[in-house]
Amino acid sequence: MLINLFAYWQITTDEQLSLLGLAKDKQKTLTHERDKLKRASVLLDIHKSLRLLFPHNRELVYGWMTQPNRAFNGATPVQIIDERGMVGLYMTWCGLIWMCRGTGRHGF
């Protein structure tokens, strides 16, 4: 499922590795197995939230992760997750949850 999602998001292999907490250098390991599973779960939840928020706009659902966002000072969600790791992943996910609940913050 994640491989298909990454294809829809049109993100690079390096970005995919970053989102999953995997090192680009095979000599380094960034995360433990539990962390990888949590990351996968949150990524799928992000996709679910996007589908709930934009049920009639597949282009936005699949393009949102790679589009600059005011809430992130013009950075993309993928860049935020790459730079901040799990914190960035949760920032992205929580922003979408707030939007789903109708309490979205400026920029999302």
Rank of each mutant, 00 (worst) to 15 (best):
M1Y: 03
M1A: 09
I3T: 14
I3H: 09
I3S: 13
N4Y: 12
N4I: 10
W9T: 09
Q10C: 03
I11N: 03
I11M: 06
T12L: 07
T13A: 15
Q16C: 15
Q16H: 12
L17H: 11
L17M: 11
S18H: 05
L19E: 07
G21Q: 15
L22M: 15
A23R: 10
A23P: 04
K24L: 13
D25N: 14
K26Q: 11
K26N: 08
Q27L: 14
K28Y: 15
K28T: 12
L30E: 10
L30K: 15
T31I: 08
H32S: 10
H32Y: 09
D35H: 09
L37G: 04
K38S: 06
K38T: 09
K38M: 07
R39L: 03
R39H: 02
R39S: 00
R39D: 04
A40N: 00
A40Y: 00
V42W: 00
L43R: 06
L43D: 03
L44I: 04
L44Y: 07
D45E: 13
D45M: 12
D45P: 06
I46H: 12
I46R: 11
H47T: 07
K48T: 14
S49A: 14
R51P: 00
L52D: 02
F54D: 03
H56L: 12
H56A: 14
N57C: 14
R58A: 11
R58M: 09
E59A: 11
Y62A: 01
G63C: 07
W64F: 08
M65C: 07
M65Q: 07
T66M: 07
T66V: 08
Q67A: 13
Q67H: 11
P68D: 01
P68H: 01
A71Q: 14
A71N: 12
A71S: 14
F72V: 11
G74M: 02
A75R: 12
A75N: 08
A75M: 09
A75S: 06
P77W: 01
Q79M: 05
I81E: 00
R84Y: 06
R84N: 08
R84M: 02
G85Q: 03
V87K: 15
L89M: 10
L89T: 09
L89A: 10
L89R: 11
Y90C: 05
W93D: 13
C94A: 10
C94S: 13
G95L: 05
L96A: 01
I97C: 02
W98R: 13
W98F: 11
C100N: 14
R101W: 03
H106T: 07
H106V: 02
G107E: 13
F108P: 01
